[in-house]
């Protein structure tokens, strides 16, 4: 089997700090892969490289064997790599509905029509509504995004990613900051996407227990470096991981 997304010796350096160091990461088509690692391990930075928000210092990124290292984030999204952001990154003065609608609009390739009123695109509106319902945001649809609570903004992030309907979904700590009651609902949304079986999902998560039964495979990053990769069970039993990551997490700095 061929990986759908793959990096080769991917490196990015900020000044003297190497945030992602020679990472060879790969995910297979329709796989559910999690990335774990302590704070500052370089997980989000890796996503920024995959999504095109950041240019690599060296190394290559391949999508379906095609070299996409120098493509803009616009092109990567259109090719089918969508992502959500850890630091909520929405349109603050637009309503929740408008935020999601923009993503739906992009996915339906409605880019340049400049005369027909937006509300006449019923299909876009229906799809938007559907997604808001899915992530439990439909009561909030006419609220401005900036007025949402943190947890709700996280849901909006996910909604926008789902609305893009890309082949690859890069989810950066989707449940962080959500209230405990909401986490299961959002996890089940992700679980459902997985169950549909036509998506490749990469999920960054801090809390290992949360993703162990969701994931087909887990990659561990530590200090910008690739530490291990394997099934959840393998990772749990891996000694380097135990020492470095788990040890670091429980003995070191609280997250």
């Amino acid at each position: 089997m061929e990986p759908i997304l793959e990096t080769k010796n991917l490196t990015v350096q900020f000044g003297s700090h190497i945030a992602v160091n020679n990472v060879n990461f790969m995910v297979y088509e329709k796989q559910f892969k999690s990335i774990i690692g302590p704070n500052g391990a370089g997980k989000t930075t890796l996503f920024n490289l995959l999504g095109g928000q950041l240019k690599a210092t060296s190394g290559k990124i391949y999508f379906r064997k095609e070299d996409i290292t120098s493509l803009s984030s616009v092109k990567r999204t259109r090719k089918g790599i969508g992502r959500s952001f850890q630091m909520t990154n929405v349109f603050p003065n637009l309503t929740v509905f408008e935020n999601v609608r923009l993503a739906v609009q992009s996915r339906m390739n409605i880019r340049y029509p400049f005369f027909k009123h937006f509300s006449h695109y019923t299909e876009v509106n229906e799809k938007t509504y559907e997604i808001l319902e899915l992530v439990l945001l439909k009561e909030k649809q006419s609220v401005l995004a900036k007025q949402l609570s943190h947890g709700e903004q996280r849901k909006l992030e996910i909604a926008m990613l789902l609305a893009l309907d890309t082949e690859v979904l890069l989810l950066d700590e989707p449940t962080a900051g959500m209230s405990m009651e909401e986490v299961p609902a959002i996890l089940s949304v992700i679980q459902n996407v997985k169950k549909e079986g036509n998506r490749t999902i990469v999920l960054i998560e801090h809390k290992m227990d949360l993703i162990m039964n969701l994931s087909d495979a887990v990659t561990v990053l530590f200090n910008g470096q690739f530490l291990a990769d394997g099934t959840p069970e393998e990772i749990m039993e891996n000694e380097t991981v135990q020492n470095a990551y788990l040890g670091g997490l429980y003995n070191g700095s609280p997250s």
Binding site: G51, Q53, S72, S73, V74, T77, R78, G82, R83, F85, N89, V90, F91, P92, N93, L94, L102, A103, S106, R107, R111, M160, L164
Partner: peptide, 14 residues
């Protein structure tokens, strides 16, 4: 949307 958050517009594929 560009006024609000240009980088995000890019990530949406515009």
């Amino acid at each position: 949307a560009i006024r609000e958050n240009e980088r995000r517009v890019e990530s949406l594929g515009f």
